[in-house]
Design a protein around this nucleic acid. Structure first.
Length: 368
DNA sequence: AACCATGACAACCGCTCCGGC
DNA sequence: TGCCGGAGCGGTTGTCATGGT
């Protein structure tokens, strides 16, 4: 327990990642996928533990991350999800495409908590502070609605929704009785009826998506992923220049922010990339992060894999078309995993489905 | 200009879970 | 069945930027 076993083996770097380390990690994962995280540092030439590499990739380098400040809608959603799920940051993050659990957790702790308290809401229980403090009975009568007849956590004239969550959820149309019990029931139900016609395009494992007004998730690829999946991509050096010189390409703005800061503070991006293939080295269209398996031979991972193997590998990647873009979905509709239950091979239990979804969404980030 | 407080965010740590053997 | 190692999660700490005094 405790520190990851790989960390004991050698002196490993800790602390902030340098641009050079980032580049090594990105290059390795875009080319080979991460496979076993414990093997990544060695293969990528990093003096880091695998755990650190994983964290850096998932929370920062992954191309499908949505950078930038959270929108008010996102904040609302986080609050609503937190009311249901508690500090299950990874599950909350799963409902916010492009956001990481760490990011959400930080936002919660640094900002949202405070906002809620200012509004008189206890961030832990989502009940009025007064109710939490003196445990008053029947607090519902004291709650007031806003002009729209609903509660809003983020509006200035906000009243706590704890007792009236049903009417508070802005995303919910004709809501059921709110409360954790409802959601828990919903959760159970979703697992009990694997063959049931999905009532929306959303996964039903966590939330009552049938009540949401959210449109079905669009055929995935995020803008940022297009950078990597683009088969006629620009030379990497050009991309780097474009990115580091003012983010002229909107697609590139989705990339980590402080790499640009690093650029200011170091010579990263100045052309001295150590003679490597460049930051965004293209791999013929598809990049297999997250889908390697630990059985892949070291030789293959070390860059001597055959073309055929690589094609197979890309084929495997195509099994997750929602990450690949519309064309991938159209070409393989039968494996339209992640869109609804029926299309997920129809036969598999929802448990399996959810499990796979969890795994893949974790590995790849989240579809949007 | 120097110091301090605060906030945002990146990263680490400790732990649990899970699959393979 | 128990052990082990890898992956992942949530809590916490560290670092840096910024604003106020």
């Amino acid at each position: 327990m405790g520190r990851h076993s790989c960390c004991y083996k050698q002196k490993l770097r800790k602390g902030l990642w340098s641009p050079e380390e980032d580049e090594k990690l990105i290059k390795h994962i875009t080319k080979f996928g991460h496979g076993c995280w414990s093997s990544v540092p060695k293969l990528a030439g990093l003096e880091r533990c695998g755990k650190s590499c994983r964290l850096r990739w998932i929370n920062y380098l992954r191309p499908d991350l949505k950078r930038g400040t959270f929108s008010q809608q996102e904040e609302k959603l986080i609050i609503e999800l937190h009311a249901v799920l508690g500090n299950k940051w990874s599950q909350i993050a799963a409902q916010l495409p492009g956001r990481t659990d760490n990011e959400i957790k930080n936002l919660w702790n640094s900002s949202i908590k405070k906002k809620l308290r200012q509004r008189g809401i206890d961030p832990n229980t989502h009940k009025p502070l007064s109710e939490v403090n003196d445990d008053r009975k029947d607090p519902s009568g004291s709650n007031e609605k806003n002009s729209q007849g609903s509660y809003s956590y983020l509006d200035e004239k906000t009243e706590p929704p704890a007792a009236a969550m049903a009417s508070s959820y802005p995303l919910i149309d004709n809501p059921p009785p709110a409360t954790h019990e409802f959601f828990l029931n919903r959760f159970v139900t979703s697992h009990e009826a694997p063959t049931k016609q999905p009532d929306s395009h959303h996964l039903s494992g966590f939330l009552p998506f049938s009540y949401t007004q959210q449109p079905p998730p669009p055929p995935p690829p995020t803008e940022s992923s297009d950078i990597f999946f683009n088969t006629d991509s620009k030379p990497s050096s050009e991309l780097i220049t474009e990115y580091t010189s003012g983010i002229s390409n909107p697609l590139l703005s989705a990339l980590p922010r402080n790499t640009a800061n690093f650029q200011q503070q170091s010579n990263w991006g100045s052309g001295n990339n150590g003679g490597t293939g460049g930051f965004f080295q293209n791999n013929g269209g598809y990049h297999p992060w997250g889908l390697t398996d630990c059985n892949k031979s070291q030789n293959q991972i070390n860059g001597v894999e055959s073309e055929q193997d690589y094609i197979k590998w890309n084929d495997q990647f195509l099994q997750v078309p929602f990450l690949m873009g519309k064309s991938a979905i159209e070409s393989k509709p039968e494996v339209n995993f992640g869109v609804n239950h029926e299309l997920y091979h129809g036969q598999q239990s929802v448990d399996t489905y959810n499990k796979h979804f969890q795994r893949i969404s974790t590995s790849f980030g989240h579809f949007s």
